[in-house]
Each structure stands twice: as structure tokens, then as C-alpha cells.
């Protein structure tokens, strides 16, 4: 993986990289990828993927309203709270 590819992935993941990381990650990640490509040699024809370690029916909850958090608790951990809202700097892209 090149540094350029790595930086693109880092933007997708919204992870800032330090200079040191930019230095060491490409080599490390290339090593990891080359190691995990051992899976290419495994015959998985006709094998279903395992998404869940145990088989169980989906859990369904009844449609009942339960108490929400007290507002002060809901906001207590907010890094920037204004008038009962969480504030963020301007949003430069739409959803």
C-alpha cells in the first residue's frame, strides 16, 4: 500500500495521521496484507459465510415507550453544549 492510498483510506475513516505514522504505516500495512492473503489459498467454494457465532432468532421488543435520559444527563458529556443542543463547527457537506 502506498502512502497515497493509505491517506485516502485515512480520510474515509476520518483518522488524522502523524508524521511518524505516515512513515511506518505503509510498510507495516503491506506486511499485514501480504500475510493475510494466505486466505487466497483456502478453498471456500460452496462455503457459506459465518456472520454470527451462534444461531438465534432476531430479538424483538414490544413497542413501548420507556423513560428517556434526564436532559442534563443527556448533555453532560458534550464537549460543546449550547441552549440544550450539541454545537459543532460548520458542516461543509450535505448528507
Amino acid at each position: 500500500m502506498t502512502l497515497q492510498e493509505l491517506e485516502a483510506v485515512a480520510v474515509t475513516a476520518r483518522v488524522g495521521l502523524t508524521e511518524e505514522e505516515k512513515e511506518i504505516f505503509p510498510e507495516q500495512i503491506s506486511q499485514i496484507i501480504s500475510h493475510i492473503r494466505v486466505l487466497d489459498g483456502v478453498d471456500t467454494h460452496g462455503t457459506a459465510p459465518t456472520y454470527y457465532p451462534i444461531k438465534q432468532a432476531a430479538f424483538l421488543r414490544e413497542d413501548e415507550v420507556e423513560p428517556s435520559l434526564p436532559k442534563d444527563q443527556a448533555l453532560a458529556n458534550g464537549p460543546d453544549v449550547v441552549d440544550g443542543y450539541f454545537r459543532v463547527p460548520r458542516i461543509i457537506e450535505e448528507e
Binding site: A58, F59, L60, R61, E62, D63, E64, V65, E66, P67, S68, L69, K71, A74, L75, D83, G84, Y85, F86
Partner: peptide, 30 residues
């Protein structure tokens, strides 16, 4: 289990799950 009622005070109908607090898990409404 938070209420869906429209027009409540901001951030008054939230709980750890719908706030995405770490450790919470989704409980599907039948």
C-alpha cells in the same frame, strides 16, 4: 424505548442507545 412524539424540547427524548453511547446495542421494535 424513547418516545417518537414530535416537537419535544431538544435532546429530551434520547437515551444511551439512540445517542450511540459506547456499549449500547440495538433492540428492534416489533
Amino acid at each position: 424505548g424513547c418516545s417518537t412524539e414530535f416537537g419535544a424540547e431538544p435532546n429530551s427524548q434520547v437515551c444511551p442507545i439512540c445517542m450511540g453511547l459506547p456499549g449500547t446495542l440495538p433492540l428492534l421494535n416489533k
